[in-house]
C-alpha cells in the first residue's frame, strides 16, 4: 500500500506527513506527529476524547482520515495555550477541579473552545448539549459546566 503525502496546517504551523489511506487523523496525530494530547477512548466518535478543531468546527479526529486533512487547518490541545500562557478554559478547568483522571479533558477543552468561539455567552443548557458528545466518567459534569461558564465570563471581561 502506498502512502499519501499530506500538507496541512496544525496549530498554525505548516506540517507535511505521509499516511496510509485508511489511517485516521487521530492515528496520524498520535503516532506520526507525536501529538498525543488527543486521546482515543472509543475510535467510533462516541466519546469525544479525540476532539480537534478542523477549519473552525470541532470534530472527532478518529472519524477523519489523515488524508482528508490536506489543505485544512487543524487545532489540537497542544496548540491551545499561547506559549506558557494558558487559555482561560485551561485555567478554569484547573481552578474549578473540572478534571479528575483528566483523560477526557483535552477533548472537552477543544469542544468548549469551539463553543465559546461561536457563542461567547452560552446558557447552562447550551453548554450541556454542545458538550454531550464528550463523555466524562469521573466528574458528573457539574464542575466542567461551571468551569466553562467561568471561562466564558472571563473571556467576556466579566469578573468570574
Amino acid at each position: 500500500m502506498s502512502s499519501i503525502a499530506v500538507s496541512t496546517t496544525i496549530n498554525g504551523d505548516d506540517v507535511e506527513y505521509l499516511c496510509q489511506a485508511d489511517e485516521t487523523l487521530l492515528d496520524v496525530l498520535r503516532n506520526r506527529l507525536g501529538l498525543m494530547g488527543s486521546k482515543e477512548g472509543c475510535g467510533t466518535g462516541d466519546c469525544g476524547a479525540c476532539s480537534t478543531i478542523m477549519d473552525g468546527r470541532v470534530v472527532c479526529s478518529c472519524l477523519v482520515l489523515g488524508a482528508e486533512a490536506q489543505g485544512r487547518s487543524i487545532e489540537t490541545i497542544e496548540g491551545m495555550a499561547n506559549g506558557s500562557e494558558l487559555h482561560p478554559l485551561q485555567t478554569k478547568f484547573i481552578e474549578h477541579a473540572a478534571l479528575q483522571c483528566g483523560i477526557c479533558t483535552p477533548g472537552f477543552l477543544m469542544a468548549a473552545k469551539a463553543l465559546l468561539d461561536v457563542n461567547p455567552e452560552p446558557t447552562e443548557e447550551e453548554i450541556r448539549f454542545w458538550l454531550a458528545g464528550n463523555l466524562c466518567r469521573c466528574t458528573g459534569y457539574d464542575k466542567i459546566v461551571r468551569a466553562v461558564q467561568a471561562a466564558a465570563a472571563e473571556m467576556r471581561g466579566e469578573a468570574a
Partner: peptide, 9 residues
Amino acid sequence: IGSTQIQGR
C-alpha cells in the same frame, strides 16, 4: 444526528 463533533462532519 450525533454530537456537535458529528454535526461538523
